[in-house]
Design a protein around this nucleic acid. Structure first.
Lengths: 353, 353
DNA sequence: CTGAAAGCGCTAACAT
DNA sequence: ATGTTAGCGCTTTCAG
């Protein structure tokens, strides 16, 4: 059996209340008592039982990051930043994977998590309605990675999809591309058709829409024909990137610039093209999105729209803190859009196309 | 306020005890009552408060994976497999990062975790003594990723370092290498000097030792001179891999085969050499370890000793289940060494050296 | 098959 | 500055 507060109290010769106060550093404990208690706790290897603390006081010092899964390097890099931020704010990050299942996600948010953590940060896989979300999250401090079609009660943090998409496309044009295609769809989202009434888009959906809009604008066509003619619709991972490369070549390489919605896709694409002897950037220029670390060391190195992950992490944690520390204050929901920077690398170098 | 068992009980017109039994699927509840309770729970969006359950019954259905940090793709891939395994065993995985800090690791294991999770899996950063570990973990079911210099009470799962190292080196020799060097050290471990009395080695330490032994054997030298003459001592990430490439070139490229203790190092190495115009595998052959997914799509593709991650995950979860489900039975500690497969790819292709 | 009572370990409110 | 009391929401034990 683990040692409890009572054991420490007995050892130190004080009541368990005083003991608790001493350990938590509350002001109303005499230095002498505190020292005794600390010594006893140390000697007995006491550790607070977080379940008990949470049950009683509704705070555990944990914040949870709910993510589809940790495969995308983007999410694992973000986890690292979030953990760092959380720790420096005196909290601990835990990461949970919904495994792309909406029901798993629901159960994580609803039960596993909300009764253990002080707040959470979700990169949703499901397309929630406003009502769904409120039902699920209740009063818990939460930050959503993504955007809403209607305003709601929750804080949001997002990467600047339109700006990022535009700067990527502009970059391709500056480097001499005249016909640009998009790689990456929404196929990873469990419900391909967005259900009636849903008001939350996932990261994939948001970025895809932004890309479609940008191209529709550029080529003066409607979104639908862009989808039909300029989209290579694949999942967001490197295997799908390889598949995209094959689709592109089978179609006779109709574009001289490819914007991949995610770096993992782009890296797969680079590999697929290289295998087939297609030269990048000479025959086709490639740019990705997110700025994962492997993009800096691929051959050729991958141009990308790098997302400010430390900035995102710090925004998330401060939004959560704001609500955790002042749960009573009516706080209006806030939307933070983090910055990006365009990393121009070899994969889009100008030259004979 | 979230709905509690009492609310559901009132709504269903039964006692909270019966309610609890019904929800947990215990046998001694009439079908009629169960249906009523389930309906009420659904209507009220009831979710079990895990803190309360854990506090009372000492099981939460959570298992925790404690990892230095999620940067290495190896750990994020493993997290995905562990989550899958846990879910199919009816549990939920949570991942916590110690951020390479022994004290952080201690506090995660000691407090955050042991009072919340049914069991845990640790890839330690600290070099624990037997006693430390027992103190910290107590009776909690735990699986350690790594090995011990003395037998202890805990289950262990490890990648087959000696076998993997040997097969990598043998492969390099078969491909025509005559002078082999090792890339990667133990510098990530916080305590570079292993403290007196420590009996647990970290993953890095284990693999490094295995590699030193293998080369000592091959070249009939003692371990110390191998360390001095055949080790490029860098950290386990791609930036350090680039640095290693520079060190290697500055030293006049003294080896024709390089075994990188981790794929991330190898990928950085590949990049560094490519930048400098050194051709792989023609001028030097490179092989990595772990089998992360990016190794299959680099240029050149990277030969590697791929670790059976699904196998490792399933071993971990079944070891934990064994103890979680039979906490009273005295179970002897078990050591599972998972399999590897050598993936021969372009980076070690035979040819004119 | 169902319910009443006790208590997991802690913290909050209220004495002293 | 310290102790006493109550109770967070659940599961367990035991009585009906």
């Amino acid at each position: 059996m683990a040692t409890t507060l009572k054991d420490v109290a007995r050892q130190a010769g004080v009541s368990h209340t005083t003991c608790s106060a001493a350990l938590r550093g509350l002001p109303n404990v005499s230095p002498r008592t505190r020292k005794k208690v600390l010594a006893a706790a140390q000697a007995l290897h006491y550790n607070t039982n977080l379940s008990a603390r949470m049950l009683r006081s509704n705070h555990s010092g944990l914040i949870s990051f709910v993510v589809p899964d940790l495969s995308p390097t983007y999410y694992s890099m973000l986890s690292v930043e979030l953990a760092r931020e959380a720790t420096s704010a005196g909290m601990q990050l835990v990461v949970q994977q919904s495994q792309h299942s909406a029901s798993e996600e629901n159960s994580i948010i609803g039960s596993a998590l909300s009764s253990l953590a002080d707040g959470f940060f979700v990169a949703p896989v499901a397309h929630y309605t406003d009502e769904d979300l409120s039902m699920l999250i209740g009063d818990k401090p939460a930050v959503i990675l993504g955007d809403f079609t209607q305003t709601t009660r929750y804080d949001r943090v997002k990467s600047p999809n339109s700006e990022g998409v535009n700067s990527a496309i502009q970059h391709l044009r500056q480097q001499g591309c005249t016909s640009i295609g998009i790689v990456g769809g929404m196929t990873d989202d469990k419900e391909a058709d967005i259900p009636e009434g849903s008001s939350v888009l996932t990261l994939q959906g948001l970025r895809m829409h932004a890309a479609m809009d940008a191209l529709a604008d550029l080529y003066h066509e409607n979104r639908e024909s862009i989808v039909n003619e300029r989209l290579i619709d694949v999942g967001w991972n490197s295997d799908e990137g390889i598949r995209a490369a094959n689709l592109f070549m089978e179609a006779g390489m109709p574009y001289d610039g490819l914007f991949c919605l995610d770096d993992e896709i782009a890296l797969g694409m680079l590999h697929g093209l290289h295998e087939a002897g297609v030269r990048v950037p000479e025959q086709v220029k490639i740019i990705g999105f997110n700025g994962i670390r492997h993009s800096a060391i691929s051959t050729p190195t991958l141009s990308t729209v790098e997302v400010d992950l430390p900035g995102m992490a710090s925004a998330v944690v401060s939004l959560l803190r704001r609500r955790i520390e002042h749960p009573d204050v009516e706080t209006l929901p806030q939307k933070v859009t983090v910055g990006t920077i365009l990393r121009a690398r070899e994969s889009t170098a100008a030259g004979n196309v």
